[in-house]
Every structure is written in C-alpha cells, then in structure tokens.
Amino acid sequence: MPFTKINNKMIEAKVFPGQRLFSQRGAMLAYTGEVTFKPNVMGGQGGVMSMIGRRVANEDTPLMTVEGQGSVMFGHGGHHVHVIDLAGDTLCVEADRLLAFDGTLQQSTMFMGQQGGVMGIVRGQVTGQGLFTTQLTGQGSVAVMAHGGVIELPISPGQPVHVDPQAYVAHRGQVTNKLSSALGWRDMIGRGSGEAFQLELSGHGMVYVQASEVKL
C-alpha cells in the first residue's frame, strides 16, 4: 500500500529500490530522496504489442516510470484523487484518469464493444470512454483522478446501479456495463430531461462516481 493521502487532492507515495511506480507524466508535485522519472514510451507494461494495442485503442496516456528511494507527492490538474487498493481483483478505468499505480499491477487494454453491440458503441461515445478501457489486475494500489469528490457505490447481484455516464469514473469486480437509454420524443425536440442515457452496472463489485459531470 504505497499511497498515503495527504489531502483530497494530493497523495504521497513511498518508493523503495527494486519497486517501481507508474504515474501520469507531469503529475509529480514534489519529492525527497533520490528518485528518477523516466518517460515510458510504451505507455505502461507489456511489450511492444501492448504498446501498439494501447495506441490503437487510444488508451496510451503518457506515463512515466518512477524508481529510486524516497517519497514522491502526486497531484494533477486540481482534480480530486481517490486511492483504490486492489487485492487480486480487477479495476476498469479510463487511462486519462490514472494518476499513479503500483508497478506490481498488470495493465491491459480491454475491448468494451462486445458488451452490448451497437449500444456499446453509443456508450463509448456518450461516456467519452471509447470502445476500449484500461484494466488493472493484481495486488496493489491505484490513484484515480476525478473532478469533485468520489463516492463508492456497491453493486450486488439483483441490485444494479445506474450512473450518469459523465459522472462514471471506474468500476471494479465482476461487473457488466450496459448503456440504458430513455430516449423519447422530448429528446428529439430538445426538451429532454438531460438524463437520456444511463450506465447500468450489474454484477458484483463497486462503481466509483464523481460528484460532477465534467469529464477529465
């Protein structure tokens, strides 16, 4: 658990030799000790194929590798930071929202299109997620950025959670992700409620929602 929260917009990470962290480029605020920051051309873990996959999927947020010994403070863009501890399970998050994560986590790109067909494409458009999302699996911590504070909503079988696509941040666990629409004739003439699309998450896990409809 290398991340300690300093305040709601700032985290501190301890770096030890032999361990590494990935963080978004330019997100370092300050550090003590001897720490090096190297741009990660690959954009994360895996080989060249993973890099190409990320480029194709537009999930190639510029990352840097943080190594050395000391402690580093991270924060970015005035966004609220939320630390999620993973214990062997999976977190799905948009790559732009990743502030920092443990090098021990397995990073992969997931195609979301198979969940929902045409509606999946619409969902990608509405949420700004695109058709791909980044998956992190394993033991370790992830720091995720959100505009406004983050609330966690548990998802249990039989109790799906509906989230405004713009307020959706991330989810973890065995969760199916479906866009439900309530489009009516009112939306066609511009008199809709503004809540025509909702993300329906069902399964078993947790969804993280930001208190804002501003996308990063």
């Binding site: 480029r25 300050a30 741009p39």
Partner: peptide, 10 residues
Amino acid sequence: LGGASGEEHQ
C-alpha cells in the same frame, strides 16, 4: 522526440 517525463526540472 522520445518523450519527456515532464519532470526533468524542479
């Protein structure tokens, strides 16, 4: 080219 970590200067 080749990227910069953005943290070369403090």
